[in-house]
């Protein structure tokens, strides 16, 4: 039987909590780094059909800066931290204190790209270590990889593993945003556990999933 058919409302709530704890720690890390308040939205957990992924990431050609990490260990999966390109540029300007960086030249700016990659690494790292503590699972991220491209093209990379097992992906999505940001552009954490990992995550939290 398909694993998705066994997932019910309480399970989705657990996954929400997973997103909440992970992104909460990441938001704190970002807030300390920038010395600013960072807001976090209540995580959403959605079961998305592959053909609907493009609407899900906010339009099919939305350009984002994304940091990708593959999780290894007890519960393998993929993790992305995505920011709209404009937002990523602003963040990098603040972090590097170099205001000559623009969304047009970011990819050619070695320091800027490196800072962005490191920023993503810190955020994703705090997400994961919180997750690992919460579940007492051993989770190790691969070194981060950075790409600036269409959101859907990037996300689809993380869906390859999921797509072997079915046509739906469980996406744990948490938005964070700058408190005094009026434009309301947001960063997203996407956690895409491999299909086999759900059972392990639920089990480690003491929740049964019917066989």
């Amino acid at each position: 039987m398909n694993y998705l058919e066994r997932i019910q409302a309480p399970h989705l709530d657990i996954l929400k909590e997973v997103g909440n704890i992970g992104a909460g720690h990441a938001a704190t890390a970002l807030s300390k780094m920038l010395n600013k308040s960072i807001d976090m939205a209540v995580p959403s957990v959605k079961i998305v059909h592959l053909s609907e992924v493009s609407e899900f990431v906010g339009g099919d050609e939305m350009v984002v800066a994304a940091i990708f990490l593959r999780l290894q260990g007890d519960a393998p999966g993929n993790m992305f931290f995505m920011l709209p390109l404009e937002e990523a540029t602003r963040l990098i300007q603040q972090v590097t204190d170099d205001y000559t960086i623009s969304s047009g030249n970011l990819t050619e700016n070695e320091i800027g790209m490196s800072a962005l990659c490191e920023l993503g690494n810190i955020l994703a790292g705090s997400y994961l270590s919180a997750l690992s503590d919460f579940t007492s699972l051993n989770l190790q991220p691969t070194p981060p990889a950075l790409a600036i491209d269409m959101a859907m093209a990037i996300l689809s990379h993380g869906l390859i593993e999921v797509s072997k097992a079915g046509d739906y992906a469980i996406v744990i999505d948490t938005k964070i945003s700058d408190k005094d940001d009026t434009t309301q552009s947001k960063g997203h954490f996407f956690l895409l556990p491999d299909p086999e990992s759900f059972k392990i995550i639920f089990h480690s939290l003491g929740v049964k999933i019917d066989e």
Binding site: L50, S51, S54, M150, M152, L155, S156, H157, I160, S163
Partner: peptide
């Protein structure tokens, strides 16, 4: 055409798919 999808088109219609990464 969405991800993992297949569709047909006849002229004068056009057909498109967006965000091809490794697909």
């Amino acid at each position: 055409v969405g991800m993992a999808d297949l569709k047909y088109a006849n002229s004068p219609n056009k057909i498109r798919t967006s965000g091809l990464g490794s697909c």
